[in-house]
Design a protein around this nucleic acid. Structure first.
Length: 823
RNA sequence: GCUGGUGUAGCCCAACUGGCAGAGGCAGCCGACUUAAAAUCGGCACAGUGUGGGUUCGAGCCCCACCACCAGCACCA
């Protein structure tokens, strides 16, 4: 018997695939296409099991789709710009580029050792000037269209990363990368006007019917669309205070207003107020409260009365102006009207400071009383105590009252979003240089297309002493103004690396195109992406940016699409000892060790078998034994017959078969149907593997009975079916067995088995017979047996349970059971 | 607190539109092979589906109320 020498088998087949360029693809109008995408890795130094899980899923889909006759695009690349490379440079004195290239080389070796089916000629690295050239080109196009702009605004500064961050990258005041708390700073920065697409990002979700609901919900929350009204509240001798509300119908119940401590009018209001100094100091304390805690509502509501009043423009009533820590400057106008009767937060505040509570919306049922109200009523109802609007249902009052404000000139209906423009400038070296220069005479001047790419200078100093290393490279900073030819200073900020990943999937299609980012014809052929597999942690980052980028490209006339991805499949994480596997937890598994011990095929099979792909998978040291033993079992089975079959002529499986051979053939075809469906429709790869194990068990059981005689061609069919169905999961061992059975062509170019419904059909069916819901017997009937036959047989077999009782009903569920109801 | 997901054998997990709770694997037990063990081959056992109600001839699956764990959202006016 030949040993299963996985080291030898795997490296040999990897070499053959590489030599043959087995996975290279080109546009082929004669075939249906399938674009199978996975999230490209950051070259941190090692492929980890999480990546492996991601890439095993896409590899199975890609290989099976190829065998099913599709022209499959399944590319890989490197998200190669980013901070860790620069930190390595500071800490270890290795240039970011060297560090990155070495990591890429190592990780590429790891991926190749796992046998993934990539067209390596399409490999891209975003740190190639050939790639980031087009980031710059896109930036210039957006600058022309006003989508890219420079503005001064409060931004998130991460002291640990020494750079600013986009809003969604500092959620809850925490840097997404290093988890440090960010600071607020006012800085002039570059933004992309993603808010120009905010409604489209929401509306086009209707097209994303193969995206998981939880991702869409997250994105929807993040965009945070909230229709309402803005209303100006006049203040004697000052500018009016503008508030935003979603419930203008409750405005007659506004008994006070509250400004965010950072609101620009706070200081002005305090001037001339009694005890101004003391109030100022207390407000300063509110400002100093932990920002993150304030954002998350973790602090108690606190406020300071300014001593001033504003006028409710609807009622003409004077109401006190407060400053409160629960009002945020970053949302709406940073000022609210407070309606304690109908808003929980306002009620809490009002009770704490003894402010009036006035009911202005009355629901069905007992009359609400502001004085005793314990819970704010924030539902709908009939508007009361509201002057001319009394009696209106609140949903009708909202548009009427907003229209009234507009008519009178002190307000209007408006929509507020939580989404902010995408801040893309970073004060770091290892990113795409933003292609503009600053000229004393001409101001901000874009670098002309023909001068692109603006290349990162290789000789920047990585001292770690703060400041962008690019600023310290005179040859880079000192530029010529493209407009006037005079001296100019080059922009030293680089782009957010999420820019790189927003469009990389277009670049794969024409990775070396030098006169544009993407080839239009190739995009037409391959897009949209049929399946995108990756981690869900990118739900409001990469996946939103990518959707925006495609819409922007569409508006530049580059693509004819609203959405890049048809089906999104977020795979589950890998856990160990009940915790997420991560470097910081110190519980990682190195795929290399597993490959050395069990081989790539076993690792692949185990990862896919251990849990459904979308759920977390628990890594277990003993669990891997099962799939490994299974492969040995298949290997021995094929080994017993390979020599003989490889020299025998192929024979048709006869239509008439002895029972054992018939049973085997049925199982073979049932398995084809199950595995195909589990892979293609359900992406339920664990059950596909289980079905294959079942089939192999069945072959073992029947092997001796079908090895000789009319069943023999069926045995061969069974073996070859197992090999072909298993190939996407464990391609090396399958190629080897396939060859040993006498085939010359690789499985990469071999068709998927064809399902024969007739062969899969059961001839006899066993039915359970229930009496009043309890199984009391079972009968075996021919597949085509009529209802009467089934009924008679069923009643006969449970006769003793029917004695002395009256049969009320007999239900026959075809192929399942017979249910007898008696009384 | 809100939304979503998950809860099935000692463990990881199956169960198509409501139809006999068990496919697969790990661990366990018994036999065969072996001087013996491992490996291998064959076989066995184990839960009534988180809890409590309901609908139904029939519920793991549907409905209601809870519990636990996970994820997301959360003072967004």
């Amino acid at each position: 018997m030949a040993d299963y020498d996985f080291q030898d088998i795997e490296t040999r087949w990897q070499k053959r695939w590489a030599d043959e360029g087995a996975f290279e693809v080109h546009e082929d109008p004669g075939k249906p296409k399938y674009y199978c995408l996975e999230m490209l890795p950051y070259p941190s130094g090692n492929i980890h099991v999480g990546h492996v899980r991601n890439y095993c899923i896409t590899d199975v889909i890609s290989r099976s789709k190829t065998m099913r006759g599709f022209n499959v695009m399944h590319p890989i690349g490197w998200d190669a710009l980013g901070l860790p490379a620069e930190n390595a440079a500071i800490q270890r004195g290795i240039h970011p580029e060297k560090w990155t290239r070495e990591n890429i080389a190592g990780m590429k070796r790891q991926l190749q050792r796992l046998g993934f089916s990539y067209p390596w000629s399409r490999e891209i690295a975003t740190c190639d000037a050939e790639y980031y050239h087009w980031n710059q080109w896109f930036f210039l196009r957006m600058l022309e269209k006003g989508i890219a702009y420079r503005a001064n605004s409060p931004v998130n500064w991460c002291p640990s990363c020494q750079t600013v961050l986009a809003n969604e990258q500092a959620e809850g005041g925490i840097c997404w990368r290093c988890k440090h708390q960010v600071q607020q700073r006012d800085m002039e920065q570059w933004f992309l006007r993603i808010t120009g697409y905010q409604d489209e990002l929401l509306d086009d979700m209707a097209e994303l019917d193969h995206w998981p609901e939880r991702v869409l919900v997250q994105q929807k929350n993040w965009v945070g669309k909230s229709p309402g009204a803005e209303v100006d509240f006049p203040v004697d001798g000052l500018e009016p205070i503008r508030i935003f509300t979603t419930r203008v119908d409750t405005i007659y119940g506004a008994t006070f207003m509250v400004l965010a401590p950072e609101h620009p009018m706070v200081d002005t209001l305090l001037e001339g107020a009694p005890d101004a100094a003391a109030r100022k100091e207390r407000i300063a304390r509110l400002r100093a409260q932990d920002r993150r805690a304030r954002l998350e509502g973790q602090v108690d509501k606190e406020g300071v009365f300014t001593g001033r009043h504003a006028t409710n423009p609807y009622s003409g009533e004077k109401i006190p102006i407060w400053v409160g820590n629960f009002v945020l400057m970053g949302y709406g106008t940073g000022a609210i009207m407070s309606v304690p009767a109908h808003d929980e937060r306002d009620l809490e505040f009002a009770r704490k400071y003894g402010l009036d509570v006035r009911v202005v919306v009355q629901p069905e049922g007992p009359e609400l009383d502001g004085a005793t109200l314990e819970e704010a009523y924030d539902g709908e109802g009939r508007v009361v105590n509201s002057g001319p609007f009394d009696g209106l249902p609140s949903e009708e009052a909202i548009p009427k009252m907003a229209a009234w404000a507009e008519e009178k000139g002190f307000g209007k209906a408006t929509i507020t979003y939580r989404l902010k423009d995408w801040l893309i400038s970073r004060q770091r070296y290892w990113g795409t240089p933003i292609p503009v220069v600053y000229c004393d005479k001409d101001g901000v001047v874009p670098v002309p297309d023909e001068q692109l790419p603006v290349v990162l200078p290789p000789d920047a100093p990585f001292t770690g002493e703060g400041g962008n290393p690019l600023e310290k490279v005179p040859a880079f900073v000192n530029a010529t103004c493209p407009r006037c030819g005079g001296a100019a200073r080059r922009e030293t900020d680089t782009m957010d690396t999420f820019v790189d990943s927003s469009w990389y999937f277009y670049r794969y299609l024409s990775p070396h195109k030098d006169d544009g980012p993407a080839d239009t014809d190739a995009v037409k052929y391959w897009f949209p992406i049929d399946l995108y597999v990756g981690g869900i942690e990118h739900a409001i980052l990469h996946l939103v940016y990518s959707r925006f980028w495609t819409k922007m490209m569409r508006d530049l006339g580059l693509v004819d699409l609203n959405e890049p991805v048809v089906r999104l499949f977020p795979q589950g994480m890998v856990h160990r000892h009940g915790e997420v596997m991560s470097k910081s937890k110190g519980n990682t598994i190195a795929p290399d060790d597993v490959v050395a011990r069990y081989g790539a095929d076993t690792l692949r099979l185990y990862i896919l078998f251990a849990a459904p792909p979308e759920l977390p998978m628990e890594w277990s040291e003993s669990g891997i034994e099962g799939p490994h033993r299974f492969l040995l079992r298949v290997w021995r089975l094929v080994d017993r017959h390979a020599a003989a079959f490889s020299t025998e002529p192929l024979a048709e499986v006869p239509a008439e078969l002895p029972p054992a051979a018939r049973d085997l053939r049925r199982k073979v075809h049932q398995t084809i149907a199950r595995v195909t469906r589990d892979i293609e429709e359900r992406i339920q790869l664990n059950t596909a593997v289980a079905a294959l194990m079942e089939l192999v068990n069945e072959i073992y059981r029947l092997e001796e009975q079908v090895a000789e005689g009319p069943g023999r061609p069926g045995l061969r069919e069974a073996l070859e079916t197992v090999i072909r169905l298993l190939n996407p999961f464990t391609p090396h061992i399958c190629e080897e067995m396939w060859t040993r059975l006498g085939h010359r062509e690789t499985l990469v170019r071999t068709a998927w088995p064809v399902f024969d419904e007739e062969a899969a059909r059961e001839d006899e069916i066993e039915l359970a017979v229930q009496v009043n819901g309890k199984v009391r017997g079972r009968i075996t009937v021919a597949r085509e047996a009529g209802e009467e036959t089934v009924k008679a047989k069923a009643l006969e077999v449970v006769a003793e349970h029917l004695e002395g009782k009256q049969v009320k009903k007999v239900l026959i569920v075809p192929g399942r059971l017979v249910s007898v109801v008696v009384k």
